[in-house]
Each structure stands twice: as structure tokens, then as C-alpha cells.
Amino acid sequence: MCLGVPARVIKINGDIATVDYGGIMKDVDAFLVPNLKVGDYVIVHAGAIIAKINEKEAMEMMKAWSSIMEELKGEI
């Protein structure tokens, strides 16, 4: 029920957006997230966009943990 599926916005028409789930297109409610742009990666839950995905942040978390693992190697 709290399942959120990543998708890409391909069209915006007022409060409704068309998103692409890797090949499957669907109209979803876009009212909950302001300032959406075509090309944004988003999380869709129960037919509504609930959040944007920050790709830069995603890559940084991986980098951060790669260095944390290096640090801990010395510690443990």
C-alpha cells in the first residue's frame, strides 16, 4: 500500500501528468508536488506523484557509504 514506484514525467497537463514506468505510460495526479517539469524522476503512489527523486543525492549517498566503508575498515 505504501509502495512507491519510480517513474519519469513525460507530459504535464494542468494537475494531471503522464508518467513513464520504463515503458508503461499512465496518467497520474500531479497536484501534490508543485513545479514539476517534463523529465523529472518522481515517486508515484496509488495514482499520485508524492515526491521528486533527487538523482544527485542518490549518487552522493553511494559515494558517502563507499568512503564510510573504507574508514571503518581501518577501525574494525
Partner: peptide, 17 residues
Amino acid sequence: GVGFETTQPTLASWMVR
């Protein structure tokens, strides 16, 4: 309608409009 915080605004969205 059931759900936690994730789902609740997806309902409210249509009511406020």
C-alpha cells in the same frame, strides 16, 4: 479508502479541489 500518511494526501487532493 485505507492507508497511512503516504496515501492520505492522494485522497485529500481531490477533496480540496
